[in-house]
Design a protein around this nucleic acid. Structure first.
Length: 338
DNA sequence: CGCCTTTGACCAGCGC
DNA sequence: GCGCTGGTCAAAGGCG
């Protein structure tokens, strides 16, 4: 319910564009009422990875440092959006957020800090093996201890246009549940990172509005390297984008284990707010992150209405810039192209 | 055999 | 307090 509401909100905000994370998030992702019109018609062979911009990422790293067009491009809808932004407990966290899209997730920073701890503690308690068995008990205890409603990990919704529900992102996931959701003919699937110590979860559901759109919501932060990476299965990467040389790793990597960040040239910056780097080059059905927005607790990368996309241009765009294309508001891109 | 998905049941949070 | 809904558990079964 609440979640639904929230997601409605976030989708709404996605549609309304100006992301709710007004003040503290310098809107590295301005989304000035524009769609990432990388949506194309004929991109069935475009991999998630590619879409996420593995290509030519280095060409425009600066794009991630888009000058906070915050005020200029996207007036914060502060009035319409409840001030749900967590009080910057992020003095450090947010500060750590480089002027990159990772800022987007900074809105969830507080939640991250607070929420991840319990999970981690339960793990570090040592009874990892029994964890599953005593899970409920532990949960109850934790709740009792907390004396408050359970805290959710920061979430990051990611809309992609894809025929497949479960997008490869370089990590291994185990499905642990599926639920029919209200107001949607499509079930929601729940996945958990298979890594024992990693509590990252993700939900995958199809948009009821547009069945072609898959909404993937990541929750939590990977505490381990991508299994794919670890295996060194793929080293297909272009020279690390300039940004990578930044000594300062994204603090709150959604899906990015800190240990991997430096290696993850793939999505150096995206990694901090996007799903883990899709390292598996399995041909996807053209998942397309098209638009970003966010909620205090949920940053959202959504795909815009396909009708807004310019198919041909999109194809070219993907070729030219990769994911950046998707992440950078078309408006800005146009300016660049001019 | 290990890992994964499926699926029904259970639980907690929230609104009324 | 009750009912609804989302989220999770865990047994069972499938697959490589």
């Amino acid at each position: 319910m609440m979640v639904e509401k929230r997601e409605d909100e976030m989708e709404a905000s996605a549609a309304a564009i100006p992301p709710p994370f007004s003040s503290q998030i310098p809107s590295t992702f301005p989304l000035p009422g524009g769609f990432f019109d990388a949506d194309g018609g004929d991109k069935g062979s475009v991999g998630f990875l590619e879409l996420l911009g593995l290509r030519d990422l280095h060409q425009s790293p600066f794009l991630f440092e888009l000058p906070r067009p915050t005020s200029a491009v996207e007036p914060p809808p502060a009035t319409s959006d409840p001030p749900r932004l967590p009080p910057p407990a992020e003095s450090s966290d947010t500060a750590n957020f480089p002027a990159t899209p990772s800022s987007i997730s900074s809105s969830s920073t507080e939640a991250a800090v607070n929420a991840i701890k319990p999970a981690a503690s339960s793990i570090t308690n040592g009874d990892e093996g029994e964890h599953a068995k005593t899970n409920r008990t532990n949960k109850e205890e934790e709740k009792k201890k907390k004396g408050q409603k359970r805290q959710r990990e920061p979430r990051f919704a990611f809309k992609t246009r894809s025929e497949v529900d479960h997008l490869e992102d370089g990590y291994r996931w185990r499905k642990y549940g599926q639920k029919a959701v209200k107001n949607s003919p499509y079930p929601r699937s729940y996945y958990r990172c298979t890594s024992a110590a990693c509590g990252v979860k993700k939900r995958v559901e199809r948009s009821s509005d547009d069945p072609a759109v898959v909404v993937t919501t990541y929750e939590g932060q990977h505490t381990h390297p991508s299994p794919v990476l670890a295996r060194g299965a793929h080293q297909p990467l272009p020279p690390p984008p300039l940004v990578l040389s930044e000594p300062r790793p994204p603090p709150l990597g959604f899906g990015f284990p800190s240990s991997v960040r430096s290696k993850d040239v793939h999505l150096p910056l995206l990694g901090s707010y996007l799903p883990p780097p899709p390292l598996d080059f399995r041909p996807m059905t053209a998942p397309q992150p098209l638009m970003l927005t966010s909620d205090p607790t949920t940053a959202v990368a959504t795909s815009g209405d396909p009708r807004h996309g310019c198919n041909r241009t999109a194809e070219v765009s993907i070729r030219d810039h990769g994911l950046l294309q998707d992440l950078i508001p078309s408006k800005i891109r146009k300016e660049e192209e001019l």
